[in-house]
Write a protein that binds this DNA or RNA. Structure first.
Lengths: 147, 147
DNA sequence: CTTGACTCTGTACTATGGTACAGGGTGTAT
DNA sequence: ATACACCCTGTACCATAGTACAGAGTCAAG
């Protein structure tokens, strides 16, 4: 059987846009395994797995750059599973921190909703007041995104 | 006392780039409270609170667009708790959904990490294997961002 | 009255993760 | 042999969230 797919078949199979596949190629993340004389790209099962890995890892909150690192680890045979594990652990810590932040915000929002019943003006909103806090003054670096 | 700050002082105070303040102004999120005859922007304490609110809310993962909504609630003095309550409830639901997404993501990461035995070569790494799964084949929509 | 720090406007550029053409060539079924 | 789906390259464009100038004007100290 032919395991070689043309770009449109691969796109449909994995559920991504054709342009996205070519975009990943531009980034050096996913090359066709062959080309027809016409220039048509051909992809084998390995490429298909690689593309699926990209999409799945993305759904877990990894950036394309981080995914490149994971892919590199997989390809470099001297790299060990522990390297992958450490990257996953670092990502997990960032995700957990983000969850804590959002839970704090959810608590503040619940408190706002609770205190809002009496028809007070919005300039006494606890959430808005809380957000005005000088938690990040004078050049302090704010921990950024989860990604 | 003079509560009016020039842009550089405000930037230093809150810990953001001067260009960022002007960028927020272009977006209509933060206007100077006055201008000197020379055109220099002046900001009062209220503007300072507003800027801090933007940065704090951003650190919690809100987009600038969502922050605009929060700011609108605060500034419209006719807005009462009823208005705020509805906005806050909608926001809370989005935050809670976000927390659930992130927790699912964290569980997936923990499970991957747990199954990973550090000494194995990466071509047997369960994390990478799992990421190759056909969890999202044939047009399945992958839940997107973590934000 | 000059120096240096600060500010102004306007435009261009960065990164991230794509999407959308234009203007061709290819492959195959009828 | 011709219609039509598919593919090619190249470039431009989208949103988000800024950053980096250029070239000019302003302000305060010495």
């Amino acid at each position: 059987m032919t395991t070689e797919l043309k770009i449109g078949q691969l796109a449909k199979d994995v559920g991504v846009n054709i342009e996205t596949i070519r975009y990943y190629e531009r980034l050096g993340m996913l090359s066709p395994t062959a080309r027809l004389p016409s220039g048509y790209r051909l992809y084998n099962r390995e490429a298909q797995r690689r593309l699926r890995l990209i999409k799945n890892a993305q759904a877990l909150g990894f950036t394309l750059h981080e995914i490149e690192e994971l892919l590199d680890l997989r390809v470099r045979s001297k790299a060990r599973c522990g390297d992958v594990q450490r990257k996953a652990e670092a990502k997990l810590r960032r995700v957990e921190a983000k969850v804590r932040d959002l839970q704090a915000l959810a608590r503040a929002l619940r408190s706002l909703i609770h205190n809002c019943r009496a028809g007070q003006p919005t300039d006494r909103c606890p959430i808005l007041k809380a957000l005005e806090d000088e938690r990040h003054g004078k050049g302090r670096t704010v921990r950024k995104e989860v990604n």
